[in-house]
Amino acid sequence: MSSAALAPTVDDATIAALTRVVAPVGELTGATPLTGGYFATTYAVDLADGTRVVVKTAPTATERLMTYELDLVRSEALVYELAADRPELRMPRLLRFDGSRTDLPGDVVVASFLPGTPWQESGFGKVDEDPRAARTQHELGVLMARLHAVTGERFGYVRSVAEPAGSDGPAGARLHGDTWPEAFGRMVEAILGDGVRWGVDLRPDDVRAVLARHQGVLARVTTPVLVHGDLWEGNVFVTAEGELVGVIDPERALWADPLMDLIGADQFGRDTPAPRLLAGLREGGAPLSLDDEDAYVRFMLYRMYMSMILHVEAEPRGYDGEGGAWYRRTSGELLGWALDELLRR
């Protein structure tokens, strides 16, 4: 596990807390904040034995979180545990999970440091023009196929499914179901509720209409597979030659329809999935295609879902300035396009 860039110093109180957090793993000799993420607070921690680990903790101000973001660090720990004996998933090793919230305010993951550079910062050109980027995209497809070979028993967010049967838990822990329509319906309703809470118009009548219309299409998904859900270029680590080293931040992972990973890898896109990504999926033994009408409709439902998240999250995260205006405008246009496309089908 790693992140985009090493930033300045850490205050003494945080150093003391990090020292206690990593004590079961090793002796802290230094720590540096990692920048580049949009959700959690992350530190690179150097140990006396010369190794580096990553400490990640999530925000604790739940009033600033969307419903699905509650307890996300627990999801990350659960996925790393799943990946522990699956090196083909290319994820950091979980070294410690601390849910006591005694040393740091939130849940804490301590994981191995992932070498390489985020694809976002690699300097690679466009996929159609740079063979290094083309290699990365193809290998990402292979990795997705390996993820989708891991199956679960219920649908929904990973930490939700891990809750005991019948557990009420926090609101974010109830986004699951025995069927995919049930789980996806709960996920969509949670975002609609967040839209009301933050004053964001998500066209709820249209959202519910297309969801009701396409229940049968969703019901064709009967096997919950492991979906990372957030394989954008900032979470994909590469070498200078374009080899995929690994992926980080599976905190938004689900047991779901594998088509959702195509959306997570291209969150603001309007195009169909890249041919090299699909070729990698075929090579990995889990081909995906949108040639079938049902598959295309599901793909667009997940585009709708992602754009709903993007459109709301700008408010609790306080995005401002020109960047914030672009984020709101673009996510709103994307949601409108997805809904209009679904209403025509």
Rank of each mutant, 00 (worst) to 15 (best):
M1R: 08
S2V: 05
A4R: 13
A7Q: 13
P8R: 11
V10H: 09
D12P: 04
T14M: 14
A17K: 00
A17T: 02
T19G: 15
T19Y: 08
P24D: 10
V25T: 06
G30L: 11
P33G: 07
L34M: 09
G36M: 04
G37V: 02
T42S: 12
Y43E: 06
L47C: 05
A48R: 14
V53Q: 02
P59R: 04
P59V: 07
A61F: 12
A61E: 15
R64G: 15
L65A: 06
V73R: 09
E76F: 05
A77G: 12
V79C: 10
A83Q: 01
P87M: 06
L89M: 04
D98P: 00
G99C: 10
G99R: 08
R101G: 11
G106R: 02
D107T: 07
W119V: 00
E121Y: 12
E121Q: 11
K126S: 15
R135T: 03
Q137F: 07
G141H: 01
L143S: 01
A145V: 03
H148Q: 09
G152H: 07
G152I: 03
E153S: 15
V158C: 08
R159L: 13
V161I: 10
A165T: 11
A173R: 06
R174P: 01
G177C: 05
T179D: 11
W180M: 08
E182T: 10
A183G: 09
A190V: 05
A190L: 08
L192H: 02
G193M: 09
L202Q: 01
D205L: 13
V207Q: 05
V207G: 05
A219P: 04
H228C: 04
H228D: 05
W232P: 00
V236F: 07
F237D: 01
V245L: 13
G246L: 02
P250G: 03
A253G: 06
D257C: 06
P273S: 10
A274R: 10
P275G: 06
R276E: 15
L277S: 00
A279V: 07
A286F: 14
A286R: 12
L310Y: 04
E315N: 06
E315H: 11
D320H: 14
G324I: 04
G324L: 08
W326K: 11
R328Y: 10
G332L: 06
E333Q: 14
E341Q: 15
L343N: 09
